[in-house]
């Protein structure tokens, strides 16, 4: 099963402060470990929300575009890994082994979320999206 390990933002990641060379080296080792174990499918870091935007959808069909940065830093995504493991417990174990992703001595957090596979949906919904299997990360 696939899980997304979502690294939450902190004050420094939102300020665009780059991680130390030490943290980058530790992350590189962690990534290599996950790659060697055949666990890692993808991993990305995001620019701060200041460079982002949000589109809000309204009932009458209109959309509102809001430019970043966005408040509530600890709920923002700073980066993620997509991993393939046998259980949620294994996903949690990998997250625990991750180097503390904090870039400034704050408490940091990784959220682990199971990713939907097509087989999680009833056949009727799978039939409604015939091309989707090829679009999902593998």
């Amino acid at each position: 099963m696939r899980f997304m390990m979502i690294v939450k933002a902190d004050k420094n990641s939102e300020a665009g402060v780059l991680p130390s060379a030490e943290l980058i080296a530790a992350m590189d080792r962690f990534n290599k470990e996950m790659t060697d174990a055949g666990v890692m499918l993808a991993g990305e870091g995001l620019h701060s929300s200041a460079k982002g935007a949000r589109v809000t959808f309204h009932r009458n069909g209109t959309r509102t575009v809001t430019e970043g940065p966005f408040p509530d830093t600890k709920h923002l995504v700073a980066g993620f890994w997509m991993i393939q493991v046998k259980s949620k417990e294994e996903a949690i174990e990998w997250a625990r082994r991750c180097p503390d992703p904090a870039t400034g001595g704050e408490t940091s957090e990784i959220e682990i979320r199971q990713v939907f596979d097509l087989s999680d949906f009833p056949q009727e919904l799978q039939d409604a999206a015939p091309h989707e299997a090829a679009m999902r990360s593998r």
């Binding site: 696939r2 997304m4 997509m82 949620k88 996903a91 949690i92 997250a95 625990r96 991750c98 503390d100 992703p101 904090a102 408490t107 940091s108 957090e109 990784i110 959220e111 682990i112 979320r113 199971q114 990713v115 939907f116 999680d120 999902r136 990360s137």
Partner: peptide, 14 residues
């Protein structure tokens, strides 16, 4: 990709 609901997730704090 789509994710299962947050209630089914886990958070690891450092």
């Amino acid at each position: 990709d789509g994710l299962h609901a947050p209630a089914e997730g886990t958070r690891v704090a450092f």
